[in-house]
Design a protein around this nucleic acid. Structure first.
Length: 257
DNA sequence: ATGCCTAATGCAATTAGA
């Protein structure tokens, strides 16, 4: 089973790119982030025409997450993280697909730091870790995939010294990521490529993609039953070179189930 | 230190992204 995560940066503005990538790579499961569209504007028909069932949690203008499954409908198990009934952002959705539990997330950016947005990011991360503590114990394979908006180590940033005060690289945020890993999660991409410079995002500014001035912020975290079945983890970086593309590239893993 | 670029909203210029 191939499971991908892709921050599309606008699911309607990006529809031709998304459909092209789906047709080309035919992943079994896809977590999408930054739909930037309300529920009623999710392009369900176009996605279904390619053979994908879908669930989504949209929001006007910002955020929004979805899970696609090739040849079946994801069985939704949760939308939104527990722990804050007043949280109005659409940033988490979860479903069971073919015996695997898949969580799709869009963690808050958190800039500027310090400030209320940064505080929200830390609170959201705490709620994720609380929920992940339950998921890590499941006997079934679990994958929590998405845009975590954190570069875990220096190796994941083209120029670490420029990012030290940024909300994506702040010590508190990196610490939260490692607190989550310490529950027993496996960072799939880094595990399969321990020494490589490997990025999932390149800024639209300053020809970042052609200079390979990138960040690794999109992650797939696996519980032990999933990690045991991990066979591959890659970035479809060429998609970042397409016309009218997202600033993120799709990232995927192969599980031998 | 800021803008660079891009999307959404809504029709100009602002907000947000990372």
């Amino acid at each position: 089973m191939r499971i991908a995560t892709y921050n599309v940066n606008g699911v309607n503005g990006r529809l031709p790119v998304l459909l092209r990538w789906l047709a080309e790579s035919a992943p079994d499961v896809v977590c999408l982030q930054e739909l930037k569209a309300p529920d009623e504007k999710f392009p369900e028909a176009a996605i279904r025409d390619l053979g994908y069932g879908a669930i989504w949690h949209g929001q006007k203008s910002w955020n929004g997450v979805a899970i696609l499954a090739r040849g079946c409908d994801p069985v939704e198990t949760r939308r939104g993280l527990p722990g804050d009934p007043d949280d109005s952002h659409s940033r988490y959705i979860e479903a069971a697909i073919g015996g695997v539990l898949v969580g799709g997330l869009y963690l808050p950016n958190g800039n500027p730091r310090p400030g209320p947005k940064f505080d929200y990011k830390l609170r959201w991360f705490d709620r994720l870790i609380e929920h992940a503590a339950i998921l890590i114990r499941m006997d079934a394979p679990v994958v929590i995939a998405g845009d975590y908006n954190v570069m875990p180590t220096d190796r994941d940033v083209y120029k670490p010294e420029r990012w030290l005060d940024d909300a994506l690289f702040a010590p508190e945020v990196r610490a939260a990521f490692f607190r989550m890993l310490d529950q027993g999660w496996t960072d799939a991409l880094r595990t399969m490529h321990p020494d490589e410079t490997i990025y999932t995002f390149w800024d639209y500014f300053r020809n970042a993609y052609s200079r390979n001035a990138g960040l690794r912020i999109d992650h797939l975290l696996l519980n032990a039953p999933a990690a045991k079945k991990l066979r591959a983890a890659e970035v479809d970086a060429h998609v970042r070179g397409w016309e009218k593309t997202s600033d993120h590239a799709p990232v995927w893993i192969e599980l031998d189930l």
